[in-house]
Design a protein around this nucleic acid. Structure first.
Lengths: 208, 208
DNA sequence: CCGAAATCGAACCGATCGGTACGATCTCGG
DNA sequence: CCGAGATCGTACCGATCGGTTCGATTTCGG
């Protein structure tokens, strides 16, 4: 999803894996993720999913118990992966909070430009399955994102870091929505400029 | 959806309607809207839908041809209704662009506080049915919203109204996402303060 | 008052889907 | 080399769903 995550192949993804349950489970998770993301949680059945994965239904059900079990495990893994990826982008941006903030939206723009981009997987999932576990995973995902942004707000010396972090979170999610459902071009850049404008001091240099 | 739109009753909604096709169609549309919004497009079947509406399946299919037909007609109507409702809120806010902008987010907060609030119906629908017509309706909905906000940006004397309108649109959609999936409290207010901070001049008085 | 149109209610159909069962095959540790 | 467990492939099951059909009933325009 985030990094160009491999287009959808039509053939088995599991190979080389000897009989190692843990590895099988991880491989299923990894291979199922882009399929469920592209087609939607209900857009692909267990049968086709298994066929594409090169895995029997019995194996899938032994590891995840239920389709919902697979979905939830997939969403958890994806949320953690996205959060870690974004945290690394921030960490790689140096010490300046403004630079860190800019890095967030530049990373988002790169994601939007991926042809496989189809919006936030957690939000999409929550819109489809409004069962409680999925909603909880989505809420936790937003929590993680909010923590990251609030941290930047704190280091930027904001008067009210939680509120500023929340406003930035709205820009992040709003930019993702607009990019997914309206126009991806420049969405990250426009959101970034808005986010920087909310910084306490205008220490942002050239806003190009 | 927007105005407290009537909680879900368990019994027929169609009454008094003599045999008047146009009225029947409108009544079905109106009664089906909150059900499809609350349960999700695939969360309620045609059978239960008809039972709740007090309408036979044949009648529904004669008017809408298909469940997708009903869904699309419902989304179109809802998008227009929401846009009109928001435009009226803006018009009622007087001449000051800052006041108009504040009115947008105050209206949103009132929506978020409705117990029936479950996020933007168009975005939810697009996340479920990624068929083309639904995506087109969603895109058109964002277009309408963008026009409204860009108009405010123009009247506010923004250097680049389309970009500012788009940034405001991100705040609108972002606030809605956060309110729906994280925490509705204060979402509209925080988004409003961020939006006002993006105004060219700080003509916004007390930012309470 | 009659016939066309609208509606109802219920039965029905074919397809799909999530999940289970089972025998055959494969792999690895002891 | 053998037995336990993982995997496969396939067939199968029950439920649900979207959509159709049809006879009976109601309503309204002419």
């Amino acid at each position: 999803m985030i990094e160009p995550s491999g287009t959808i192949e039509s053939m088995p993804v599991l190979k080389g894996s000897t009989i190692d349950p843990a590895r099988t489970r991880a491989a299923i998770l990894e291979a199922a993720t882009p399929l469920l993301y592209e087609r939607g949680l209900d857009g692909i059945g267990v049968a086709e999913l298994c066929a594409r994965l090169g895995v029997s239904k019995e194996t899938l059900y032994r590891h995840f118990g239920t389709k919902d079990g697979l979905v939830q495990a997939m969403l958890e893994a994806r949320s953690e992966r996205v959060t870690r990826w974004m945290a690394e982008a921030v960490a790689a941006a140096g010490q300046d909070p403004a630079g860190q903030l800019a890095a967030v939206f530049d990373a988002l723009q790169a994601w939007y430009d991926d042809p496989a981009f189809r919006g936030c997987a957690m939000l999409n999932a929550a819109a489809q399955h409004h069962v409680e576990p999925v909603r909880a995973i989505t809420a936790r995902h937003l929590d993680r994102y909010l923590d990251l942004l609030t941290g930047i707000a704190e280091r930027a010396g904001a008067a009210d870091p939680p509120v500023l972090g929340r406003q930035w979170l709205m820009l992040v999610e709003g930019a993702t929505v607009v990019a997914a459902h309206h126009d991806a071009a420049g969405a990250g850049e426009h959101a970034r400029r808005a986010a920087l404008a909310l910084l306490p001091a205008a220490r942002t240099g050239p806003q190009g």
